[in-house]
Simulated assay, not measured.
Amino acid sequence: MKSSKKRKKVSEKILKTLKVPINKHLPLTENEEEVSLRTKEEIIDRIISLAIVAAKAMEAPPEKIEEFIERYKANELFTEEEQKLLKKKHLTQNELIQYSWKLECIWLLLWSVNLVSDIDVPADTCNAEYVFETVFLHSKQELLDKSSLKPTSDILDSLDFIYRAHWAVREAQINHLEVPSSLDEGVVYERHYTLNWLVNYMDQEWEEISTDT
């Protein structure tokens, strides 16, 4: 079992290779025995609800959104904020951007249940078409059958790395410096948010997630 100290060391080595600034004083992330991951069904439910919301943000026709909701019996899966969004006829520009970014959350979640084989360094946005095909070409049962939860250790490796990468992004933003070219600030944020949800960080639910650095 990998210790938090070992995980930190590996993350910092990767960041150094990517020419990303490192804060040696950032605390350790959780050990495996301290973490209780979301269940596979919780993750698949979140993938489905986010995919429907993202489809609306990508301006899918209203009848298509209704079809998805009906097909996945998804009414109970949405957060209150998502329910409000889905009831709107027209989204603001800010909402279109905010919820389109949820594709990055879905990509991370698909990886967490082995429906995406690998997640690259967070330098580029994901393949939106692949995300929608992976979700909407399968029933919920098929997604459950095809998926398997990644080991806690793998998820904590990604969390430790993104936590330290997010510090570098925020440090650049605060000091009006250029964000390292190997990091996309939006991708880093969405991955950190999603990973904190996955590990039940501070027992926060989806709309409450904090991304402390």
Rank of each mutant, 00 (worst) to 15 (best):
K2P: 00
K2C: 00
K5Q: 10
K8R: 14
K9M: 04
V10K: 08
L15G: 05
T17H: 14
L18P: 07
L18N: 05
N23T: 09
T29R: 12
T29Q: 13
E30A: 11
T39E: 13
K40L: 15
D45R: 05
R46T: 15
I47E: 01
I47N: 03
I47F: 04
S49D: 13
L50F: 02
L50K: 05
A55H: 01
P62R: 09
K64N: 07
E66P: 06
E66M: 11
E70A: 12
L77A: 08
L77H: 04
F78T: 09
Q83R: 11
L85I: 06
H90R: 15
Q93K: 14
Q98I: 03
Q98A: 13
Y99A: 04
W101T: 10
L103P: 02
I106R: 03
W107S: 07
W111Y: 12
S112Y: 08
N114Y: 01
N114R: 11
L115S: 07
L115Y: 05
L115C: 05
I119Y: 07
A128C: 04
Y130S: 12
E133W: 02
T134K: 13
V135N: 02
V135Y: 01
F136Y: 07
H138F: 12
S139A: 11
K140I: 06
K140E: 14
L143W: 10
D160W: 01
F161K: 01
Y163V: 04
Y163Q: 09
H166V: 00
H166C: 02
H166K: 12
W167Q: 00
W167F: 09
E171A: 07
P180F: 12
V188G: 02
E190A: 09
E190F: 05
H192P: 00
H192D: 06
T194V: 12
N200H: 11
M202G: 00
E205L: 09
E205R: 13
W206T: 07
T211H: 00
T211I: 09
